[in-house]
Write a protein that binds this DNA or RNA. Sequence first.
DNA 1: GTAGATTGATTCAAATTTGAACGCTAGATG
DNA 2: CATCTAGCGTTCAAATTTGAATCAATCTAC
Lengths: 178, 178
Amino acid sequence: MGHTRWLNDEEKRAWTAFTTAHALLYRRLEQRLKRDFGLSGLQYEIMARLSGAPDREMRMAELAGALVNSKSGLTYQIGQMEKSGLVRRRSCPSDDRAVFAVLTDEGMALLERAAPGHVETVRELLFDVLTPGQVRALADGLGEAARRMAEGPGATRAADDGSGCSGVGAEATADLGA
Amino acid sequence: MGHTRWLNDEEKRAWTAFTTAHALLYRRLEQRLKRDFGLSGLQYEIMARLSGAPDREMRMAELAGALVNSKSGLTYQIGQMEKSGLVRRRSCPSDDRAVFAVLTDEGMALLERAAPGHVETVRELLFDVLTPGQVRALADGLGEAARRMAEGPGATRAADDGSGCSGVGAEATADLGA
DNA sequence: GTAGATTGATTCAAATTTGAACGCTAGATG
DNA sequence: CATCTAGCGTTCAAATTTGAATCAATCTAC
């Protein structure tokens, strides 16, 4: 392997902008969610994902894959949210291994209260700053990068077996600003 | 406050692409760093930042601000890295409150070994996928967003007093792919 | 100068995250 | 059918992160 292809100045700018913007934005969103609704960012994302899925439910592994989170971490958070009544577990009749996380009515209600402010913040801090062309570049460029990383080698398999328990095709983008 | 300005389809695509690409990429980078060098992502970033600063040192608060991390979290990590000899603390003669984190020669050497693979991964998974126009859009659009969030209201102050202890202007972008 | 307010960093307990086992079931192979 | 492999979710201990105190030192206004 020859010489490293270092980043040029514009790539360095892009890289720091990417990581810094993400960190700052995510931090703001978390602060707001915690302060106003006692929710963590992950909890919001879980609810947003579930809200967009058929019957408002997803299998644990599928959900973990969609959120890019570890399985054990998801188990923990679903446990917390179950205590709070935001989510409920349901086991799958046809496959005793599978567990579904289901968004409760209470969870849905909280999500609907939290979503407006959340989305508004994303808009103010991100989309109001970007030109339409830049929005498209994000969607296209980063979308393609994400797709390749999700499939390509090294991806933590989330193997989508089309088992009889239903199951969503991976691309369910929630309406409530997942 | 009237109605919520929800995200349109392209904005939703951009938002999920942004968050998902970041999560996937960051996870890959962390796995690689941990496996090959026993480093966490944060530790790498700390070293990369320090390596680009004058005298390879920064004040704790300044560093925390640059990394978008809590002060207490940084205290912990610097403690860990000090044990490993990657970093060393130095107190400021003219201000007894201030503490500098200094990258040691050993730390610098490790960074130089880790950087090529790190940067190469970023290139493969991100920049090789993006068009030059998309790179520019990231740099410009997200750069502007980051700038506003860093300054605008709600920013966790990192007040840059130009005290006699030296101190870097906030924008030191490290060469080693911070 | 001195009280009072601010800033810099650390400490501490609680919450969360991580990754490697573990137990269990479904599906494949013989 | 018996066994073997692989997938799913959980558990567990260790590591990390968080945020609210805390302690000390600087700066401000009297």
